[in-house]
Design a binder for these strands. Sequence first.
DNA 1: TCCTAACCGTAATTGAAAATACGCTATTTA
DNA 2: TAAATAGCGTATTTTCAATTACGGTTAGGA
Lengths: 196, 196
Amino acid sequence: MKPEIREKREAQIVGVAYEILERKGFDGISMLAVAKAAKASNETLYRWYGDKHGLFIALVARNVAEVEQHLANVKAKGGLEALLAEFGPVLLGMLLGPRAIALNRAAAADGTGELGKALATGGRDVVRPRLVEILGTYHAEKTMPELFAMAELYFTLLIGDLQIRRVTGVLPLLNKEEIQSQSNTALENFLRIIRS
Amino acid sequence: MKPEIREKREAQIVGVAYEILERKGFDGISMLAVAKAAKASNETLYRWYGDKHGLFIALVARNVAEVEQHLANVKAKGGLEALLAEFGPVLLGMLLGPRAIALNRAAAADGTGELGKALATGGRDVVRPRLVEILGTYHAEKTMPELFAMAELYFTLLIGDLQIRRVTGVLPLLNKEEIQSQSNTALENFLRIIRS
DNA sequence: TCCTAACCGTAATTGAAAATACGCTATTTA
DNA sequence: TAAATAGCGTATTTTCAATTACGGTTAGGA
């Protein structure tokens, strides 16, 4: 199979896997179901990804790429406040969306912790440098560890325990207004702290 | 079986289940393993708890009782700050401990969301009133919704995304010093916000 | 005391999904 | 073009844990 075709095929398989994952949840998905829905064979899935674990690693990779792309679209327009006002809802929306939640559930079920690490590496560890960079632009007087701590504080205020509550099924999918509201509150409190 | 004996027997079974859960993790536990370790029979487990789900509900109930008891020991000594300084580490230590994390993993794997609701009802929903009460004592001028919001803010700052990171295996078990440090930071930021 | 129901220990059943195998077709490559 | 390899669709094997069944034993009430 030519590399470019293989590329598209993999993208399609991963896409189908996400569809099933969102529709049936983590316990409702099986390798066979993915294979059938993608009109691929079980054998191919195993040849390409090794095992179920490998398939999920591929899903994470795709998710990471998506997050990076969306955040890249957030351009520096006004000051720090305006920038974070854009940044927050985009990030929060993705972190609480069906895909990220499904992946977090998978990571919770993964005894090895590999999936969790992959998720973190692709999530927080990719976003934080971007955030530190933004903060650094407007707070040149701060040291690196201080910027780091500021970024952590922002994450805490923005995400809080919403993700764990989504993962455990306590919290339903938030709509745009709720995402916006949560982001605003987080930003308010964040600014209040760093300006005091 | 006499009620008091039955009571002790159930407590012992739940205790054994927790042991296995902490040692082997959520995917390593099975009804049969619990039965054998507790020197009980499979049949009895099913008669008493209905199914695996029911057993976990019982585990949650036990966990809740424990949390309540520990928090009840936190007495009002000094002002709000001193009180929260005691309250925080105790609560955080339990929420990030092996048992709570294992239960949250179970809830993540539970498609019905029942376990998650039970956890929330026994966790946050039990602790929040206590917290609102404490806050109300020192901020009599606040309305109920305001106290409510303050409690939520405190939760956010205290727990943040530590629980989801523990559940996904990104974060190891924290030691006393780390718990203490996190609680202190949360308290600092909390006071900074409500006093601004 | 005697009888019934609960309990123990273990075996058997069931069900589901991961992982593998295989015959067939298509595609690559020598 | 012809052999070899990859991929498809389906069937099969494996594995593992939930759940049920059962003979033997014990406790508790009539």
